[in-house]
């Protein structure tokens, strides 16, 4: 039985999302929360398969919930459901380990389709997110970046970079599949891998930063 966490502060939207989730995953058990605090408590109590997390919440940011979920239940899939479409809001959540995002105002049928794709391992990737991912990895590739022995060396393969570059230029994933002579499934795997690497690299970076600030090694 699928166990789903639903974190959303607006009651109307929450109930709407609940019905939507139940449509995609019939018979799933949905735990609802309106605050970051409640969501964190639920995470420590219940094992989830999927979490739909809003970013702007009255008592904090959904990014914290994503981080906690990634720490406590690595196998659970965190999906951002938000009104913000800009990468400035989305990117930190993706770095924290979110596996895709859904824009709330889209028509119901589009959201259900996206949700299905995400749960099947086909996360969305917009050009601006792709650009930020590229910037993230190219900044790390610079020689003065972290020493190799302190940081698990995470870098993109040539193919992954190729996919990112094409996404940044506005090509859709099926188009890229055609251009590179790859199946839609393979392209989706690349994107999934990019998300994973972004998360690993960002976490290693955060750990290194914390070490640099003297939080560790005392």
């Amino acid at each position: 039985m699928t166990h789903i966490l639903l974190l959303e502060d607006l009651p109307e939207i929450r109930s709407w999302l609940r019905s939507l989730v139940l449509q995609v995953f019939p018979g799933a058990q949905v735990s609802e929360a309106a605050r970051v605090h409640d969501a964190l408590e639920l995470i420590s109590a219940v094992r989830f398969d999927l979490a739909l997390i809003d970013l702007g919440l009255p008592d904090g940011s959904g990014v914290d919930v994503v981080t906690r979920l990634r720490d406590r239940q690595p196998e659970a899939q965190a999906v951002i459901v938000t009104i913000h479409d800009d990468d400035e809001h989305l990117f930190p959540a993706l770095q924290a380990g979110a596996f895709g995002y859904i824009l709330k105002e889209q028509p119901r049928e589009m959201i259900t389709e996206q949700l299905q794709r995400i749960s099947q391992g086909e996360p969305p990737l917009s050009p601006s997110i792709a650009r930020r991912v590229m910037a993230h990895f190219s900044a790390k590739a610079k020689p003065q970046a972290a020493p190799a022995d302190l940081l698990p060396h995470v870098s993109l393969t040539e193919r992954e970079s190729e996919v990112l570059l094409r996404v940044a230029k506005g090509y859709t994933l099926p188009e890229i599949g055609v251009q590179l002579g790859l199946s839609r499934h393979t392209i989706a795997d690349y994107v999934k891998q990019i998300y994973r690497k972004l998360n690993v690299s960002s976490r290693a970076e955060a750990a290194l930063e914390a070490q640099r600030l003297g939080l560790f090694g005392r």
Partner: peptide, 9 residues
């Protein structure tokens, strides 16, 4: 270039 990417997508 970025704007064109966004528009295209």
């Amino acid at each position: 270039g970025d704007a064109l990417g966004d528009w295209r997508a």
